[in-house]
Nucleic acid binder design. Structure first.
Lengths: 170, 170, 170, 170
DNA sequence: TTTT
DNA sequence: TTTT
């Protein structure tokens, strides 16, 4: 059934990249989306929306986005639940990004003349090697030492990811 | 910032209608959206997405939708948090519907020749009186005896709605 | 770059199914989407939006939808142009559906207990044989005798489809 | 009925601002949205999508966007038709933007510390005076001398806008 | 637990 | 706590 989400916002922190036991990349991040209206106290609030992205776009996200980056997400809402450590069921609502668009312009001291708007869609994956990033390698550090975990994308305390290489929806 | 959600799914239960202290209608319901792909165990799963709708469309939802109804939602993702009764902060992600479309055809024994597709948008609110519903009044019972509560739409145990008539975003 | 469309409307005519020279199915149809507001003359108008869908979902559309069917579309806006017969360039804006959802309930005299909401997404293609349609074969006639054309989906007067099996975006 | 479009792309030219006879601002512009996949010849193509925006956001668009600007649009698809000068009916499909988001970062030599992501939604209209633009007044020229026309937003050869101040959907 |  |  129809389930479509489009967001533009800023990462509240650096994205986190993990791998399933079978080696599939998963990145998680939170987008702060400022609301287009003000609250009754007159201040501008934001929604903080948890996003998950799989495979190649996950690695692109980890490589090219960081805290504060402006990004667009096209995906679906997913809900799931697991048993929390206190024994009660925890319900999660998050966005599974099918594509992530990088909306930050390249930094001023970079050599490229490209202006923003790079797409990290799964179909549009142009398989850029990490070393040849047009954005430089200032984020490369973040990609080192990632442990392969078999965890729930947004938590460290529960519920293995029940996913296998063969059965991913995209 | 851009934040758009479009869903089509079925209500898992009858919607719940409440009123804020200042008399604003709020309806809450959960949409079951079947996923377009199967899990690794081969079964078709669903996402259960909590939705909130305000004002006139809230009353339309309460009047015309019930458990199992097929409905479309156009809205935004909202996050909020409150202190749970166990003292820890609870984070909520839900969809605030700006318009709800009724996708169930009118029942066979009804007199109208209209086929499905009725819209409950706030701008398109055609202000149908409860008593003159083209769908009959079989749901009207549900609208009686609603207590005016000042509660968080999806819970009975917390956090007053911090909203006033004057400051609604729509 | 982000480009997302979600529509719900009714087919203005039976869909048209064609095949490219290389055998790829393409269906075209027009969705009438009633506007949620009225014009200044007080009447409710509609937008008539041309849609194209490729491959398996194209065949599903041709088999299960017909004039008047309520359907949902999730896709992208596409523009293209070609030289019209009067020598001037014609510009086309249409929606390429990635998935089409059938929102009509099964007909009253059908044996299935399923209620509406069937999805024709490419990933969700459950490869239903034409002969085993749960909706009967009243539309099957429409699928016979389709000439394999190498035409622009919405016109008979021009411009070959520049697409090959290998290079489809989905 | 549901009809939702979200786009991110770059303006192909400076936006054009006009006013209806009753004084309502209308801006038109075309967004180039690069496709996330390549054509069979291996080159990356784009869709060129005509957009219309009304009232305050129209003026914001004219003031803050120009050729090449990266912008997001949230709106609806609209179709309309009129009689062309050659006597045949012309059909138009375009996007009516309900909100436009400015995704270009402010220019390097500006004094503000704000980074991109400004929203021009109708509800979020913060009513910035033209003279106090945080982006400087380099675009202000474009806003001078606009004739009040009663034309179809995207053409100079036809069909009066059938709209009045009182009957706008937003 | 939040971005600009 | 889930719909068809």
């Amino acid at each position: 059934m129809m389930n479509r989400v489009v967001l533009v916002g800023r990462l509240t922190k650096d994205p986190e990249l993990r791998y399933t036991p079978s080696g599939v990349a998963v990145a998680t991040f939170t987008l702060a989306c400022n609301r287009p209206f003000t609250s009754q106290n007159g201040d501008r609030e934001a929604d903080f929306i948890n996003c998950v992205v799989w495979r190649k776009p996950a690695e692109n996200v980890a490589n090219f986005l960081s805290k504060g980056s402006l990004a667009g997400v096209d995906g679906r809402i997913q809900t799931r639940s697991f048993d929390g450590q206190d024994g009660k069921r925890v319900f999660i609502t998050e966005v599974v990004a099918e594509s992530v668009q990088f909306l930050e312009p390249r930094s001023a001291n970079s050599g490229s003349s490209n202006r923003g708007g790079q797409d990290f869609g799964y179909n549009g994956g142009q398989q850029q090697g990490q070393g040849s990033s047009p954005f430089g390698n200032q984020n490369q550090q973040r990609n080192q030492g990632f442990t392969r975990v078999d965890e729930d994308p947004f938590s460290n305390d529960g519920k293995p990811i029940d996913i296998s290489d063969d059965d991913l929806p995209f």
